[in-house]
Amino acid sequence: MFGKISLGSVGLVVGGILSVVGFAAYGFGNATLNLAGMFYGIPILLGGLALKAAEIKPIAYSKALSPELEALRDSQATATQQQIRKDVTRYRYGQDCHLDDALERLGLSPTDEERPLLHHIREESREGRYALVLEFKSPLFSLEDWQTRQEKIERFFGPDVTAAIAQPTEDEIELALIRTE
Rank of each mutant, 00 (worst) to 15 (best):
W146M: 02
P159A: 01
G158E: 04
A131D: 05
P168E: 03
A131G: 10
I173K: 06
I173A: 03
F156K: 07
F156R: 05
T162P: 00
W146I: 06
D160M: 03
T162R: 13
E144I: 05
A166F: 02
D160Q: 11
D145W: 04
F136G: 12
E170Q: 12
W146P: 04
F157R: 11
F157I: 08
E172S: 11
F141M: 11
A131H: 07
E170L: 10
A164R: 15
Q147H: 06
L143W: 11
E154L: 04
K137F: 02
F136R: 08
E170A: 12
A164G: 06
Q150S: 09
A164W: 04
G158C: 00
R149T: 02
S142E: 07
E151Y: 06
K137Q: 05
L134D: 09
A131V: 13
D171L: 01
Q147E: 15
E172F: 09
S138D: 10
T148L: 14
E151D: 14
I173N: 04
P139G: 13
E144C: 03
K152M: 13
T169I: 01
D160F: 06
Y130G: 05
V133F: 12
S142C: 03
Q167S: 15
T148H: 12
L140M: 13
A164Y: 11
W146D: 07
Q150F: 01
L140A: 10
L132F: 01
L140I: 03
A131P: 06
S138W: 06
T162V: 09
L132E: 01
I165F: 04
V133C: 13
R155F: 05
A131F: 09
E144M: 05
E172K: 11
L134R: 11
S142A: 07
I153L: 12
S138R: 08
T162W: 00
I165V: 14
I153V: 14
R149G: 00
S142P: 04
E154D: 12
S138K: 06
I173V: 14
V161Y: 10
G158W: 02
L143T: 03
T162H: 02
A166T: 15
L140T: 15
Q150E: 13
E154K: 11
S138T: 07
S138L: 10
I153A: 13
K137I: 05
A131R: 08
T162S: 14
A131I: 08
A164L: 14
L143N: 12
A166M: 08
V161E: 12
E172P: 01
K152Q: 15
Q147P: 00
V161I: 15
V133L: 12
I153H: 02
Y130A: 10
D145G: 04
G158M: 03
I165A: 07
Q150P: 02
